[in-house]
Amino acid sequence: MDLLLPHTGTIFWMLIAFSIVFFILKKFAWKPILNAIKAREDSIEEALRSADRAKEDMQQLQADNEKIIAAAKQERDAIIKEARALKDTIIDDAKTKARSEADKEIEKAREAIKSEKTAAIKEVKEEVAKLSVIIAEKILKEKLAHGEEHKELIDKYLRDIKLN
């Protein structure tokens, strides 16, 4: 059958056509296309690898940050603790100081009150003495008008004074 027999003209043209297609595509199409695909694949792979590296770096950085933060926290806690202790001692000191100061003041005041009291009592005594004398004078002036009685009274006072 004619269909199964290759025709010479068709073979001739097909050889030429396919050779031209093969040659042109190989040189001007497959080379740039395959190179471009390869280059792109390489660049994508490179980008992925550098992304991985960046991720690792990030993780490293994050770990470092956490370490730094933990250290800072620890330091802060220590400082706060120290400060709290300091505060307590300062307050205690202030309290004891204040107490002793206050005690001293109170003591001083007591002393002053005491001396003032003594002075006042002394003054009162003197005043009382003066008044007593005045009263006594007045009484005497009156009593001495009655003789006998005066004598008795004087004796009595004298006795009293002696007893004192």
Partner: peptide, 13 residues
Amino acid sequence: FLSVAKAYKRNPN
């Protein structure tokens, strides 16, 4: 394929 090859040259990567 030549136009595709040109496209690859024009926009690498």
